[in-house]
Design a protein around this nucleic acid. Structure first.
Lengths: 205, 205
DNA sequence: TCAAAAATAGAATTGAAATTCTAAATTTAT
DNA sequence: ATAAATTTAGAATTTCAATTCTATTTTTGA
């Protein structure tokens, strides 16, 4: 966008510091469990100051998830639209982009996946609506890729939305499992490759 | 185990009534969002009486999830141990048993899946420990089945725990998707079959 | 039948945590 | 250099919901 004054850049930097600290707290305690006092401590900004940047706890969480979510989409879009690659190649690269993102954003991933399957989320309706909209958007992008692959004969002709849901579900399940197992980066990549292989070739010999 | 007096049966019946009502409330509002007042209203038992049956909100949730979880396991165990069937057949029947259970227990499934991927759960440590233990148990049962299938040549030789995680992840993703789409029973079964087919044969032609 | 026990209904208490407020310290702009 | 504006630090307020309590009604058992 436009030029930012030094003041505005300063404000932006502080805002990001708070968001980053809040991410740690949320990743460890969840939305409900995280207290503003903890976010204040973790960020080293006083409680009152935090309310200068954000109107409340909910909006911190919202902005956090949406900003990182957009970053993930930015990573995936060029892959999904890469005209040189076959649908199969694009899908593989999507998986790898996801794996890389998950690897680099473990704290965020806890939050993102938890938020998707979170019934408590009904309490934060705007947040959850936006996050689900973002995710549905991603699902339909995957869906388009699958449809294209079906049309070109690259994929078997299953309903493309189901394929997208299963692909995304496998990635999430794998990411969550890696978190629980505290996988190092190599194990994480290996597991994602296994998931992709099974999704491509199945388990039947 | 033994005989229950009429009084005890009565108590048991009331306890179950409360659990059932609580399930609706939890399924709609989540653990944090559900209030004891709502559970009281939904069950038509006064607040004070609920505390005669349960020591608090947490234990209601805990008992609810564990009791239904045990029911799911009871459904799966005979299938997993069916000596007449091949590993492949057993896996297929597991999927169908899951689908049936999910179909018959939609409210519970919201809670069960949400609880698995819930970071807020750290706030209810006993509950979450038990639920995860139960789920891990199930994963290792699946794992055994996959290992057996690998040994007999029924399945490709991927790490059996990863296969189990992916199988379970696909079932959960499918169930969650069906809930979001408000699928009727037929659509739900169709989607589970699609998931199983892809898991078996892959999407590559 | 009727005293004791148990259940009902919901009001009062308590505790935790979000949000707001205030006074002191610091920074900024003139 | 200094008055005004901003930020800090954390204390006070407010809100919300879990839990406990009390008075009333109903049920039970002798």
């Amino acid at each position: 966008m436009a030029e930012l004054s030094r003041k505005e850049r300063e404000t932006e930097r502080k805002r990001n510091e708070i968001l980053l600290a809040a991410m740690s707290v949320f990743a460890q305690k969840g939305f409900r469990g995280a207290t503003m006092a903890e976010i204040s401590q973790a960020s080293e900004y006083p409680l009152g100051s935090i309310y200068k940047f954000f109107s409340g706890k909910e909006i911190i969480y919202h902005d956090l998830v949406m900003e990182k979510g957009v970053a993930l989409r930015e990573l995936l879009l060029p892959v999904l639209n890469h005209r040189e690659w076959s649908p199969k190649q694009r899908l593989h690269e999507c998986m790898r982009a996801n794996a890389r993102f998950f690897k680099d954003n473990r704290e965020f991933i806890r939050i993102y996946i938890a938020e998707r399957n979170n019934i408590d989320a009904v309490l934060v309706p705007n947040l959850n609506r936006n996050i689900n909209r973002m995710h549905d958007k991603l699902l339909s992008l995957y869906g388009g890729l699958f449809q294209e692959g079906i049309d070109t004969g690259d994929f078997k002709p299953h309903p493309s939305q189901d394929m997208a849901m299963l692909f995304s579900g496998m990635l999430h399940a794998t990411a969550w499992y890696c978190l629980a197992q505290e996988d190092d980066d190599d194990q994480l990549e290996r597991r994602f490759e296994t998931a992709f292989t099974i999704f491509s070739d199945g388990i039947d010999p």
